[in-house]
Each structure stands twice: as C-alpha cells, then as structure tokens.
Amino acid sequence: MILVGAIIILIMIGFAVTAPLLTKYGYEEINLKYRNKPPTIEHVMGTDSFGRDVWSRCVYGARVSFIVSLNAVAIGIVLGLFLGMICGFFKGRVDFWIGRVMDVVMSFPALLFSLIIGFSLGASIPNMCLSVGIPLTPIFYRMTRGEALRVSERTYVMAAKSIGSGSIRTMFCHVLPNTIPSLLAVLSTCMGAAITAESALGYLGLGIPKPTPSWGSVINEGRQFIFDAPWVTGFGGLMVALTILGFNLIGDGLRDLMDPKLRV
C-alpha cells in the first residue's frame, strides 16, 4: 500500500520536476483552431477553450500545486509542532492561551480562512502558502500537544531531568523525537489536504495569477465548458484525486507500520 502511494507521489513529483521534457506544447501556447478538442495522440488530454494542451497545463500545474502544498505543510508543521510542544510540555497557563488561539483558528472553516487571507493579501505563491498553511496548524498542534503530554509522563523524561537536563533540552532532545512517528502519519494526510485546498483556491480564482496553471485553475477553466469539453476538468481533477490517493495511501501505510498492534 505504502509502495503504491509512494510510486504515485514520485510520478507526480517527477512531472513537476521534468515538466519541460514531458511536454510538446508550452502551457500558455494558445491555438484557437484547436479549441476544446477531445484527447488525441497529439494532445493526450485534449485541449481547453483556448486550445491549450491540457497535458502541458496539468504537468506544469503539478509544480505550483506541489510548491504550494509542501510550503503550506511546512508552515503548518513548524508552527503546530512548536506551539504543540510548548503546550504539551509546559502545560499550565501557556497551554491554555495558545490552546484558545488554536481554537479560534480551528473554528474558521479552512477555506474561509484561506479566502480571507487571499483577498486581503492578494494572490501570489507566498500568500497561498500562508493561507493554506495556517489552517493546517491546529491539526499539527493538537497532535503534537497530545503526544508531548503522553511522552512527558514517561519515566525516561523524568530520568533525563534527573541527570540535569534543562527544560528546553529535555523538550527538544527527549520529548520531540518520540512524537515524530505519530506525526509522520498525519503529515502525509495533510499533504493531501493541502493539495485539495490549493486546488480549491485555484478553482475560486484566488490561486496564482493567470496564465500560470495549477490543478485548481485547470479545473476552474474547464468548468465553463464542462459539457462540451469534460476532459479539461476531468483530467485536472484526476491529477488531484490521484495525488491525494497517493498521500493517503502513504499515510495509512505509515500508520500501520508504526503501530505494532496492527502488524500481522
């Protein structure tokens, strides 16, 4: 399972990295003679309403989608891990206040949150990373906090303190490494969520400026002609679906691998 997931993701990353080699047409090459044409040998995924090659747009779109989702997850994980660690380890008042802030972030629907950031800061890649990443923070925060609470009750943490290790050191050297396994499983699922969020933003027109394609914008542009040229939306959606499937397979596989009780 984990292998299938990994292969899918590797192929997608391969698309993103080697896009120029895989495509015959530029992603913004307009050919008005070939508007909304179904898949042929020449255009394996057909063409969109501007006569642009959908395959090219999907392959180049992988770049934006991956850059945004990787950065977004990185933002989410760094913030979430840091805050969760502090809360789970020090508990008390810090925990209470950071927890309430996280509740506020969590109480906004992720998409609404992204929309607010998108509208107020404008559409650009860094802003998209932020707007997708911040709603992910509470997920990592809660996971890390729970794990940190659990791990800091362990005798080895007490033992670390008993040999004179200070709080910060104990937190980073003894508690943190023991929370990583459970985080890994969440991580890959969140990658999937980030891809979805990115596509949703692209679909709503808050993605990166046109004509640079992302999967979301490919789907969005196909929407108007969904009955005349369903392949545009279809293949764009397929890319998103496959990637999410890949990440979820990795996530499930990792979880099973980490949990000895599920191992047969």
Binding site: T155, V157, S162, G164, H174
Partner: peptide, 24 residues
C-alpha cells in the same frame, strides 16, 4: 538545581523498560 541533578545526586528508576529514551 540543574548542576546538582545528575552530577552530585542521581537517581535510578524502578522500570528499566521505560526509563531509557527509546530513540537514543
């Protein structure tokens, strides 16, 4: 306190199974 802990006073715990950090 941090100077004394581990240098001048140290402690052995009951459960050898859980008193060592599993990832180090």
């Amino acid at each position: 306190l941090f100077r004394i802990r581990g240098k001048e006073i140290t402690m052995i715990f009951q459960e050898p199974m859980t008193s060592l950090n599993p990832v180090i």
